[in-house]
Write a protein that binds this DNA or RNA. Structure first.
Ligand code: SF4
Ligand code: SF4
Lengths: 144, 144
DNA sequence: TAAAAAATGTATTTATAATACACCTATTAA
DNA sequence: TTAATAGGTGTATTATAAATACATTTTTTA
């Protein structure tokens, strides 16, 4: 039970950018800092760009900047955008509908609720909260 | 983001057994019913036995029975016993402590809370709840 | 003593995430 | 106008873990 590094790396990028405001940051700089695959990061950054979390600029002098202030970037939203699926159990996958307990399985409902509770916690925090290391979530949510 | 089939199969076994009380049920019967690997199930059942959820009996006429009534079997407890880890993100793995945001990463705390919320929902239901297809969890928790 | 059933250990297969590689496109400044 | 820099795209490969298969052993009862 673990999130993909794809999603975690995306969050690391946002944290790095938030800590380096008012400048263009390159993918290479971030990949070096975290000692992770630059090629992998290129695709993650591209998706962060297409989802509107970062603004990417090509060419000399280009790089990345956050598209919104950290307090306007919701963590749950980022995770939902980056993680490729939330099939909590097999039967959540539309292409795997052969469990004999379908369609009326109490377990499935329970896992749906558990998954919602998980995402609800992520929804309660912004990038700004995470930067401050706030453990009681939501404290920084109302800041612009 | 998906639980292993190992854990889901374990839960299916418990549901199957709860629906077939007062008799020995064989692994082969359950594997056939769900159309899943018998070899895989053997190991799952063995672990269910060693964790005290089922009683296994070898030899002719043997098989499985629930060791406790369904209302005494907590789903969260089963999932915690069967799923091999809950490393919500990389840094939860004790052997992977090389992220540069350690040890003070607000994200890590947030994921810890999300994971707790997830498991808390599973903790709120018993096998008896699941059998009844109860969506408002915990209703059947106080039944012996 | 033969059949039935679970237990154990190892090996193989499969699925997918992660990474690597090659090449393309856009931008800037010398 | 050209070289350098930066992200974009598509495909191929590698690594890892989960799932499955296989072989053999142990236990129990009819
Ligand atoms: S047992 Fe229930 S939760 Fe698991 S795959 Fe089947 S229908 Fe889904
Ligand atoms: S970014 Fe934070 S949550 Fe992610 S691996 Fe690093 S320390 Fe853990």
């Amino acid at each position: 039970m673990e999130i993909t590094s794809y999603t975690d790396y995306a969050l690391r990028v946002l944290i790095y950018l938030a800590r380096s405001p008012n400048k263009q940051t390159t993918i290479t700089e971030i990949a070096d800092y975290f000692n992770i695959s630059r090629n992998h990061l290129v695709k993650i950054v591209h998706q962060l760009g297409s989802k509107g979390f970062v603004k990417t600029t090509r060419g000399k002098g280009g790089g990345l900047v956050l598209q919104r202030p950290p307090a306007m970037i919701n963590i749950g939203n980022v995770v939902r955008s980056m993680e490729c699926h939330f099939n909590w159990v097999e039967c959540f996958n539309p292409t795997q509908q052969h469990c004999r307990l379908l369609p009326n399985c109490g377990l499935k409902h329970l896992f749906a609720q558990a998954g919602e509770a998980y995402l609800k916690v992520l929804d309660s925090a912004t990038l700004a909260d995470v930067l401050l290391g706030i453990t009681t979530v939501g404290l920084n949510s109302k800041i612009l």
